[in-house]
């Protein structure tokens, strides 16, 4: 019985056998990698193009007709955006040809991060908000992205438009001097958007 077990062990440790196992796995991996290389080659350009288109469309929502030039995202600006809440997430900054900045932020919502582009005009007022992507709860958090009216009858995203968070007067949800109102049931998502707008305002104010 014990002799048999020892024999089995020896077979398993046979270097030729182990090499064969490793060899076959390596060949399979290599073939799969080659296949992926081909598929990636076919799709990479199109994916990049679609992403650029999508970003451009979102930028056009906040500053219609403007042209955009990317601005470097420095560590200082990231720290500034995270000053109020570390989960505001500064992704990208674009200077608009019409003045002001379109700032892409990724605040954390109910189900992970939202991707939001906030337009801040030259005077520091919010020019527009575009929710590029999110994974909020269908029928609740999604209503925010659809700009559903809050209790005052103003679209939850529209209520920021034309108002400023410069000079330390950050937006606060459902209370405070620079108040915005959440839509009922979607307070967390509204707060996420608000954090994003605040972070974008801080960055735009710094950039001047």
């Amino acid at each position: 019985m014990s002799g048999e077990a020892v024999k089995k062990e020896k077979v398993q440790l046979d270097p030729k056998y182990l090499l064969k196992l490793a060899g076959i796995l390596t060949v399979i991996c290599a073939i799969v990698a080659a296949l992926l290389g081909v598929v990636n080659g076919v799709t990479a350009d199109r994916i990049a193009e679609l992403q650029a288109q999508k970003q451009q469309a979102a930028l056009q929502v906040v500053f219609p007709g403007a042209e955009f030039t990317p601005v470097d995202v420095t560590d200082d600006l990231v720290a500034l955006a995270g000053q109020e809440n570390a989960e505001s997430g500064l992704e990208a900054i674009f200077a608009a040809s019409t003045g002001g900045y379109a700032i892409e932020v990724t605040p954390t919502g109910f189900n992970g991060r939202l991707n939001v582009i906030v337009g801040i005009d030259a005077e520091g007022n919010v020019a527009g908000i575009s929710v590029v992507s999110h994974s909020e709860t269908a029928g609740i958090g999604t209503e925010v992205a659809k700009n559903k009216p809050n209790k005052n009858g103003v679209g939850v995203l529209d209520q920021f438009t034309g108002r400023s968070a410069f000079g330390g007067s950050l937006f606060t949800v459902n209370s405070g001097s620079n108040q915005v109102d959440a839509i009922s049931g979607a307070t967390i998502t509204t707060k996420a958007i608000t954090r994003g707008v605040n972070a974008a305002s801080l960055v735009a104010e710094q950039l001047g």
Binding site: L35, L36, V39
Partner: peptide
């Protein structure tokens, strides 16, 4: 991964 890339593109 192939399906993922193809979906992203098409």
């Amino acid at each position: 991964t192939c399906i993922d890339l193809l979906l992203k593109a098409f």
